[in-house]
């Protein structure tokens, strides 16, 4: 009866197969090319094995987790704000997390021996959460075009503000901290190691699970708060769940990889054209597509100028920026 249900399962399975194939392929590509035989269980030379298991695999897994989280988080935020522009980067959620992580690096790092990584994660979460709550408060009470403009302006102000405070922090930072800030700030998956990945492997799947389980409620929320309440939705509980899960997810991603922009905007928007707006399909599809997109972007980032690499955040911005402009200039602007 509906467009999405007839196409859903085969397409999702196809995307999953594509992701698996891409994972296998990307694990072989890089500054050191690896033989496909490694995928068939043939033990390679120790160096190749070390590159594959200690460098490539954690990096690819991190790309999958971060790509999935950013895309699913963007989808859920768009559903919650009932606005197709509610992207973690545009609304300032990511830069809020970024500023909090910068503050941690400059002011607190080194003071808590052994807790550096967790402190960075916690800072990212708190920063994203604070910005989400502020944005949510500002956006409440506006509808349609008014809501879009208000949210974008609020996001612009938050991004500018966090940029300014972040700039001030660079003056206070030591040389070591500056190097740490600039490497992390451009958005890169280069820091992926099994030790850093362990937290992400626990927390990010949990946030994704929360988002997937909220899909039916997000669908109801699209009726508007009053009608959704009458249709059986506890809207307050849903809002708290999405705000916490997306802040935790985005905050952790930013703490791990820096700001990787536009995935949360681009992925749900493209998929909605195909699957329709129902979140039960859109969120799993966004997870798969976000993972694929970030895997591709990261492989490009580490292959184009090999053995050096471009920060992956720059690659996604180069793809996402023009797409966002096209959205604003093109006919799709009417839908906002």
């Amino acid at each position: 009866m509906t467009r999405s249900h007839t196409r859903s399962l085969p397409t999702l399975l196809l995307m999953l197969a594509g992701l698996c194939a891409l994972l296998a392929l990307c694990s072989l590509v890089g500054s050191i090319g690896l033989s496909p035989r490694i995928l068939l269980g043939h033990l390679p030379a120790p160096l190749e094995w070390q590159v594959w298991s200690e460098v490539r695999l954690p990096r690819l897994l991190l790309a999958v987790l971060v790509g999935s989280t950013l895309a699913a988080g963007g989808t859920a935020m768009q559903g919650l704000f009932r606005n197709p522009l509610a992207d973690p980067t545009l609304l300032g959620q990511a830069s809020g997390a970024g500023l909090a992580v910068s503050i941690w690096i400059v002011l607190f790092n080194g003071r808590f021996a052994g807790l550096e990584l967790y402190g960075q994660f916690l800072a990212g979460f708190v920063g994203a959460l604070l910005v989400t709550l502020v944005i949510f408060r500002i956006g409440r009470g506006y509808k349609g075009r008014e809501s879009t403009i208000t949210l974008l302006l609020a996001g612009l102000v938050i991004n500018t503000l966090t940029g300014a405070v972040g700039g001030m922090l660079t003056f206070m930072a030591s040389e070591e901290q500056l190097r740490q800030l600039s490497l992390w700030g451009m958005g890169s998956l280069g820091s992926a190691e099994w030790s850093t990945l362990s937290v992400a492997l626990v927390v990010l799947p949990l946030t994704l699970l929360v988002l997937v389980r909220s899909a039916a409620d997000l669908d109801l929320f699209q009726l508007g708060e009053v009608s959704a309440h009458a249709a059986g939705l506890n809207a307050e509980r849903l809002k708290n769940r999405i705000v916490l899960a997306s802040s935790l997810g985005v905050g952790l991603c930013v703490a791990l990889t820096g700001i990787i922009g536009f995935i949360g905007l681009l992925v749900p928007h493209c998929l909605r054209l195909y699957f329709g707006p129902g979140h039960r399909l859109l969120i799993p599809a966004s997870m798969l597509c976000g993972a694929i997109l970030l895997l591709l972007a990261d492989t490009l980032a580490r292959s184009l100028v090999s053995p050096a690499e471009i920060p992956v955040g720059l690659v996604t911005s180069v793809i996402g920026g023009p797409y966002f402009l096209w959205l604003l200039l093109g006919r799709k602007v009417r839908e906002f």
Binding site: T2, R82, Q222, L223, S227, A230, G276, G278
Partner: peptide
């Protein structure tokens, strides 16, 4: 109990059947 409000403004283009 169900409620039909005065205004229904959807942000997304749901198919009527959905």
């Amino acid at each position: 109990r169900a409620l039909v409000t005065q205004h229904m403004d959807s942000a997304f283009d749901w198919q009527v059947g959905e």
